[in-house]
Design a protein around this nucleic acid. Structure first.
Lengths: 328, 328
DNA sequence: AGAAAATATGGAAACGGTTCCACATTTTCT
DNA sequence: AGAAAATGTGGAACCGTTTCCATATTTTCT
């Protein structure tokens, strides 16, 4: 393993002081002539300054920590990709951490990122606890929550209530006899509360009051079990699922029971997963502008880093992708 | 923003030298009594040593760079998740970078990670160029390729030929008249060459020689277009797709044409995506042991870091997940 | 009991950069 | 032309750690 060159080596090789080389990289005064000498050496040896050493003395590390609950959700990867993209275009780098839905690992990750001197942290949140708030206050670096509204903190949130309302309305318009709403624990306030409340309000707006709410988690298997159990108890002709993955579980269970969508049962989901469009029939779903969420998160955090005042919470929109899964 | 404490502050606060505090963290001689004093201070102020500063002096950064072509593939997130998991359990951290399928960004990422002093890099590879080889040689840190066999370098590879062979055999046993193989560019040697060659050999083993190979990329849209075009030209009663996403494109196109699977056309894919099982009919697919690939990659790279001799390439297995998409 | 080994500790020198400062050279202004 | 301003440069200090070394102190051995 060849030894890595340092700024000192470059300085010697090009016959200038190390501070001049440093300035070369950080836009300080360097004469064109000197600049050229340094450029040649750097190119010849393909030298790159060590980021860690740089951020040790400089206040900025140009590093943003991004914490995600998982990598295997369409939405998550969509946001992640856009955060990454935008971050790079703004001259930052990202460190992505996967917590695999563990709250402890989430908190531990915040600490680890902090140790790494990141300039800020973006958290793709599902459940925000008191501990989160305390930790955010403690570390005192710019922090942006995506997906959950955390009062007193900066967050980028989906317009969950209204998307829910629209979904409820669409299902309501199909004049269902009995609606099953598959939601999640209220710990996830955005989905378990706002989205759900929107759905219910939407249904009511169409005069539908015959509905039942059951709770699942985001997993396919659990959701299918929960729905299967519920379908054994009672008859439904419409199912509203909190995410597309959950809608897929419903889809699967309905297929298994030979229920036709939408003639027997209408189905609707949230997320705008690509696959929703692939199924036959395709599933009506709500797609949040996650690309925009990623971008906005980056803009917001960079603004905070630069000392700008941040608005506490910003809402991103959605659009309905109409499929064939709702009865006319 | 509260000022971050340094090891010096901790040393003063607990009345010991900073080297003692350092030893406290790095298992050196510290008397139980002293240890206790330090522990108290650290806990009171919730101090954590700055990783960057640490890795500046110490040879190890305990950081592994992981480069992925995207985040939105089932396989990728599966591998990523396991790499992460295993890395943490081994006392390392990962820096995950998404290159969004851009070769330039891939090369740039290698450089960036190198600048960050990572102890090693794991690359989830699709296409490996000469530049890759040169760069790997240049940076001289442990490097593991996952998914592609790179001669002279360490790689973890799928048993593509045999999986292909089995797929070919299964389709071959259904005695098809005319088979369409949807492959990818040979730049992706693993899939575009070995997997394809395995498929063809498998078909031949069952006496099938009536097949055609077309080329697509990994995207849904392109693949559907390519298949649609081909179906306009000729009649096929079996389609073998190189990935499940591509199989989904075929699925979609066949549905659109009212072709029944498997009675009109048999369909088979690779990857073991969850959704393959959800479709009706479910699609027969080959699932590589990607969890194991992740683990193995980590074991291998840590072994290399510790100076152990690494075997050039290790093959991971697969299993066939039988669906209902192949005619008996 | 005395020597050798093991345990404990703090000071100082790295690590590879950035930045402050003092000073030299060039350009611009009146 | 001379002063002021802008440009250019190198040395030294510093960022927050680890590690080497010198030096105590304690334990173990013969």
């Amino acid at each position: 393993m060849k030894k890595k060159l340092t700024i000192n080596d470059i300085a010697k090789l090009s016959g200038v002081g190390k501070s001049t080389v440093s300035r070369y990289f950080n836009e300080g005064y360097v004469k064109e002539e000197t600049r050229e000498k340094i450029r040649k050496v750097i190119e010849a040896y393909d030298y790159r300054p060590n980021q860690f050493a740089a951020s040790l003395k400089a206040k900025e590390s140009k590093l943003i920590g991004v914490i995600a609950p998982c990598f295997d959700s369409t939405i998550t990867s969509r946001i992640l990709m856009n955060i990454d993209e935008k971050l790079i275009s703004e001259g930052y780098r990202s460190i992505v951490v996967n917590t695999n839905h563990s709250i402890e690992r989430e908190l531990a990750s915040i600490n680890r990122l902090w140790q790494m001197n990141v300039d800020g942290i973006i958290l793709l949140a599902t459940k925000v606890t008191q501990e989160h708030r305390e930790m955010v206050n403690k570390i005192g670096i710019p922090f942006v929550f995506v997906g959950q509204d955390v009062d007193g903190h900066v967050s980028i949130i989906n317009d969950d209530y209204n998307a829910g309302y629209d979904a409820g309305t669409i299902i309501g318009q199909s004049a269902p006899q009995n609606v099953l709403i598959v939601s999640v624990n209220i710990d996830d306030v955005a989905i378990g509360k706002y989205r759900k409340e929107g759905i219910i309000a939407g249904l009511k707006s169409q005069g539908v009051s015959n509905y039942e709410v059951i709770e699942s988690d985001f997993s396919f298997d659990k959701t299918r079990d929960v729905i299967a159990y519920q379908l054994n108890q009672e008859k439904y002709d419409a199912i509203i699922c909190s995410t597309d993955r959950m809608a897929m579980a419903a889809f699967n269970e309905l297929n298994r029971r030979n229920k036709k969508i939408p003639s027997d049962v209408s189905l609707i989901g949230f997320g705008g997963y690509d696959i929703s469009a692939l199924l036959t029939p395709s599933i009506t779903t709500f797609r949040f502008e996650s690309e925009y969420a990623g971008e906005l998160a980056v803009e917001t955090i960079i603004n905070m880093i630069k000392g700008g005042a941040a608005k506490p919470s910003q809402v991103i929109g959605y659009k309905c992708i109409i499929g064939e899964s709702v009865k006319k």
